[in-house]
């Protein structure tokens, strides 16, 4: 329900050319946590807009071409951006909270963590 409200608000906002919603008039703007380190692999604004393109391209390069160690690896997203998991029963640091912040707001479901682990290696004791 909150997703739907969020989408509607965004649509209304776009339609009216209004300023983005501020705290107090509905769903608060997403506030994803800062990652560790000084700087993401691209400027924050670019990442916000294009991270899915980078991941998609990287995924094909890695799976089909065996290219590894380049800068857009999902594994590295997890390492920098993992936060304490929002689910009470999970103690690990995961990417869920970070991704959910905006994805819930924009009502875009992601399909990464059906297969990829969202846990950072630091939190599980480090397997490679």
């Amino acid at each position: 329900m909150t997703r739907l409200t969020g989408v509607l608000l965004v649509c209304v906002g776009l339609a009216l050319g209004a300023v983005p919603a501020v705290a107090g008039d509905g769903v608060p703007l997403p506030m994803p946590a800062r990652g560790t380190g000084d700087q993401c692999v691209e400027p924050t604004e670019t990442m916000r807009r294009n991270h899915m393109e980078y991941l998609l391209h990287q995924r094909d390069d890695t799976v089909h071409g065996g290219i590894r160690g380049t800068k857009y690896a999902l594994k590295d997203c997890v390492e920098c951006h993992a936060t304490p998991d929002p689910r009470p029963e999970v103690t690990a640091h995961t990417l869920y909270g970070f991704c959910r912040e905006c994805h819930d707001y924009a009502a875009v479901s992601i399909d990464c963590f059906g297969c990829h682990t969202p846990e950072s290696t630091a939190s599980e004791g480090g397997a490679e």
Partner: peptide, 29 residues
Amino acid sequence: EDIEGQKAYSPRGKGTVESCTLCVHRVDA
């Protein structure tokens, strides 16, 4: 069924097919 706790280098998930990868993550390293 749903899988949790995958290895970072070896993603696996419900509804897809999987098999020996010849440890491609190791071979690449």
